[in-house]
Amino acid sequence: MSARNRIFEKLRQAMRPASAEALPDVRDADVYRDYPSDPASLFELFKTRLEELRGEVYRVGDEVAASDKVVELADSVGGSVMVQPGEPMASLLPGLAERLCDRLVDAAAVADSADFARVEVGVTAADFLIARTGSVLLRTISSGGRRLSVLPPFHIVVARASQMVPSLEEALNGLKGLSPDWSYAALITGPSRTADIEKILVLGAHGPKRLAVVVVDAA
């Protein structure tokens, strides 16, 4: 008998009937403290939460302003920038490539992880912004793979205001509704951090030292 079968055998023998009572259908709102749900306060809540964690949040009126913002942010650190190829970035950030010129690293040219060492800024989209926790939820296929959002020291997320949801519960429900051909999703809440030495907070332990979220208003 294989280990698998033996373990299953032991599990089955250990089973006792589950309680007949159905699990209570508890919604997020029953467990957590109240949070507002109108769009304006959602953005404010998101901004407050993420800024508490030393993330940066910018709200811009349209795509052109979004490009401006990304260039400005990239300028603030200098170095090379890698933008997630294809849509939705092309329409979210019109003309970005021309404005960054030779600072732009072609994603196709960065094959192995060592090449990433020269990328200072990673720019990606996201699937959801979560107001109550100040989090960003993204999947590999919506945000340029596993590495782009974690290897470069500065991660810029560009998302539309309509992607904002109030709570983690809604974001996870939303994730279930998206196309399932992804292998990896990350729920990101602030820049990388550690408090392993004397419980003192340090940013940029291994992941990005800076995280900026640019929220584009126009639909």
Binding site: G144, R147, W182, S183, L187, T189, G190
Partner: peptide, 16 residues
């Protein structure tokens, strides 16, 4: 700060 949900190795269409 980070919560990763992993559903397998690299899938077709994923860059890494």
């Amino acid at each position: 700060c980070y919560n990763s949900i992993v559903r397998g190795p690299r899938q077709p269409g994923e860059p890494d």
